[in-house]
Nucleic acid binder design. Structure first.
Lengths: 254, 254
DNA sequence: ACAATTCTTTGACTTGCATCAAAGATTTCT
DNA sequence: AGAAATCTTTGATGCAAGTCAAAGAATTGT
């Protein structure tokens, strides 16, 4: 199966990466996604301190989970994660899917313990950023401080729009919004605007979108029958993006 | 009608309050809710600078709305707000209800413009905290910095649990969770653990919880018939809190 | 390479909540 | 105080998505 945007690292479950492999933010090709822009080289070198170590997380294993003491934020270097919360009775709600350049762990700040679970959906590699260090450097560099605030605000705004999806939209609208969002984020990372390989199961998509896996599958099939997308298991090609946009938001499209 | 926890201020729609009325954080009885704890008096006096002005917002009017340029966070001194996002086709999703001591406006940081609407559900009074000043003081006072981070993280965690409600719970569970959450927050402000007066309509509750106003009304009636609560329009008394908790979470209760 | 497991699709049937409708209560306006 | 507007309740009916079931496809482990 076609997996154009995957790097597979076959290692132990979750390991600290030796210094030799440590890559400084200043040289990182994801810098534009993770780090504030408009820095001179001196500042950039100091900011390299923010990343203490790197850590590999094997597919299916946890980066952190509910109840774990909070110490660090994580910037995803490669790979793909889901975050979820669980009710006492075991029901699980996927709260997000995160890809390279995105930051996870913000949930842990308030109580010093994580309140959600972060699972790698493929072998992944994260930059560990001890939060105390982030705060120290934020006090020194206003542009970093602003950046951290924006990351948190962006997450709040994202969750607002998920609430809109869950509270007001129908199954087709939810799935259309989901696909458009995923492909847009992948495109920002240099991948195709029209093709993607889903890293998550139908059940995980359903959990995120508040619907059952059967409904996800049926909705994919419906889009496919209508010629809007081509679906072959995890591979999806968007044939008519405008049709998807129209489903998501009938107003702004012809 | 009984309105134990309301202060009505009859003024113009939304006005800046003259300096004479300006109340310093250092003397504010909500300090424990808004401000970090463990401050000496000197620090506290400097922190008073964070609040530039106060502003009254009349019932039904907007504190800010989608698209407004972002400049400040707002700490609610008195009153009650709802925040909402709207889709292009006009559908509205209530994203939260906020009461005294809570902070609104965090959505505006990321794009320098607000992405939601904040409407006063009763005549309200907010402390205007210019965000640039919050950031300046945060760099000077690590404890304030940490406090701001916790407020943002708390909002992320709250939204995670709303996603759980919307994605996984049934109507009765949603309404039970909603009532328990409201009464708990009111209790933390010195009000009754068992009685409350709703500040929002059935439709607004429904929007927040992803259900129609008729379903909200029917669910209230059902709880009432079962002797769990007493409802008379906006007045609600919780008769058997354990029954509500059991509906919300069958596991942790007997 | 084969067996076991996990994931996906599709069909048949059920149900929780939405929709439509109308009356009654409360609040707001003049 | 009376009229108008808004909000709430309740009943009757419909439907989108859930549930149950089973077969087929893909992946994983040995």
């Amino acid at each position: 199966m076609l997996k154009p945007d995957v790097i597979h690292l076959h290692n132990m479950n979750t390991t600290v990466i030796p210094d030799a492999l440590k890559v400084a933010c200043s040289n990182c090709n994801l810098r534009e996604l993770c780090m504030p822009v408009g820095f001179n080289q001196d500042d950039m070198n100091k900011l390299d301190e923010v990343v203490a170590t790197r850590r590999r997380v094997k597919q299916g294993s946890l980066l952190f989970s509910n109840g774990d003491p909070f110490s660090s934020l994580y910037a995803i270097r490669t790979g793909f994660f889901k975050t979820s919360v669980s009710a006492e009775d075991g029901r699980e709600q996927v709260t997000g899917f995160q890809m390279a350049g995105e930051i996870i762990g913000l949930d842990g700040i308030v109580s010093e313990h994580h309140s959600c679970n972060a699972v790698a959906l493929e072998d992944s590699d994260v930059c560990v950023m001890p939060f105390a260090k982030v705060e120290d450097l934020s006090r020194e560099f206003p542009v970093l401080q602003r950046h951290v605030h924006k990351i948190m605000s962006r997450e709040i705004v994202r969750e607002n729009s998920v609430m809109m999806l869950l509270g007001n939209m129908r199954a087709e609208e939810r799935l259309a919004a989901f696909l458009l969002n995923l492909v847009q984020r992948l495109h920002a990372r240099g991948f195709s605007q029209s093709e993607l390989v889903l890293r998550m199961t139908r059940e995980e998509i359903g959990s995120y979108l508040g619907m059952k896996l059967e409904t996800v599958s049926r909705t994919f099939s419906k889009f496919s029958e209508e010629g809007i997308i081509e679906v072959k298991q995890r591979y999806v090609r968007i044939i008519t993006p405008d049709a998807l946009k129209k489903i998501f938001n009938p107003q702004t499209c012809s």
